[in-house]
């Protein structure tokens, strides 16, 4: 480790970029929720974990390959989070944003402990046919699963981008996140938009969980790490900026991999967290001002 090995470094950077792009899928919905609902969703990480478990059990019981399970996991995540918004979060919105935040915190505690209760505290991982394969590009060896995950994440992020920029739901979403009262007066059913956004995030985060679980093992308690990683990504990419989130993911992946390369693998997440704190602090007036148009 004393001298820097150029091939190793290139491997690290490329691998990190792919991995970061892959992880971006778990973050892309978080910024939509933040924008539309003005809610920091602290149960986000647990939804990501839930997606991973869903794929794990789909594979274990029905032998469905995790990649093929992605659409099913999306539907499950969507179906699970929609009632959470409707029955639990929407009613406390009137108590202020703190109440919503702490409610998602409580939900995160509940979910995490239910995971432990029902899925045991064991560390799990997802396997596919490609899990142990690598793809050689010249001297650089990249895990095939990173490439596949990257492509899937990119595709889904593009689809979300199209949804937000090209569709009627997307227009309502942007209008509601900019000025909910005016949006309602113009004729937009804002609470339905919120509901849809939260559930969409549920589906996307669950899928993101599957991709992450294909690369790393996970436990019932992985949620808070996933939450903070997702948060770092959306701050890097600019709030409300869908493709920015994807790029932010790549950037974070590279930074984390470099951190792991130079300081040891244990520092992967640490580097990301320190960067999140620094970014939060240097963005003038906090990060809300960094909202860009889509």
């Amino acid at each position: 480790m004393n001298s820097i090995d150029p091939v190793g470094l290139a491997n690290t950077v490329l691998g990190g970029a792919l991995l970061g792009g892959l992880i971006a899928l778990s973050a892309v919905g978080l910024s939509l929720v933040l924008g539309v609902m003005k809610l920091v969703n602290l149960m986000h990480g647990q939804i990501v974990v839930l997606g991973a478990y869903a794929a794990f059990y789909l594979a274990a019981f029905w032998g469905i390959s995790p990649l093929l399970a992605l659409p099913i996991v999306f539907v499950l995540g969507f179906a699970f989070t929609a009632p959470v918004q409707h029955f639990i979060l929407a009613p406390v919105a009137k108590h202020g944003e703190e109440a919503g935040l702490l409610t998602t915190f409580a939900l995160a505690i509940i979910l995490e402990n239910l995971f432990i209760r029902f899925f045991s505290g064991d560390s799990r991982s997802l396997d596919t046919a490609f899990s142990r394969e690598t793809l050689a590009i010249g001297p650089i060896n990249l895990p095939t699963i990173y490439l596949i995950g990257f492509a899937i994440s990119l595709t889904v992020c593009l689809a979300v981008w199209m949804l937000v920029t090209r569709t009627s739901f997307g227009r309502s979403l942007r209008a509601s996140s900019e000025d909910p009262i005016s949006a309602a007066i113009v004729g937009i059913h804002v609470s339905r938009v919120r509901w849809g956004t939260f559930a969409l995030n549920g589906g996307l985060a669950s899928m993101g969980g599957v991709l992450i679980a294909l690369c790393f093992s996970f436990t019932p308690s992985s949620g808070s790490e996933y939450l903070l990683t997702a948060f770092a990504i959306i701050v890097l990419g600019g709030l409300g900026n869908i493709m920015g989130t994807f790029v932010g993911g790549i950037a974070l992946g590279v930074i984390q991999s470099l951190g792991a390369y130079f300081f040891g693998d244990g520092y992967r997440t640490f580097v990301g967290l320190v960067m999140l704190i620094i970014l939060l602090a240097i963005a003038p007036n906090g990060i809300l001002k960094r909202r860009r148009s889509l």
Partner: peptide, 13 residues
């Protein structure tokens, strides 16, 4: 709505 184009603002109505 600044995040919407002029046409999108109209359609939103």
């Amino acid at each position: 709505f600044g995040t919407l184009s002029i046409e999108e603002n109209l359609i939103a109505g």
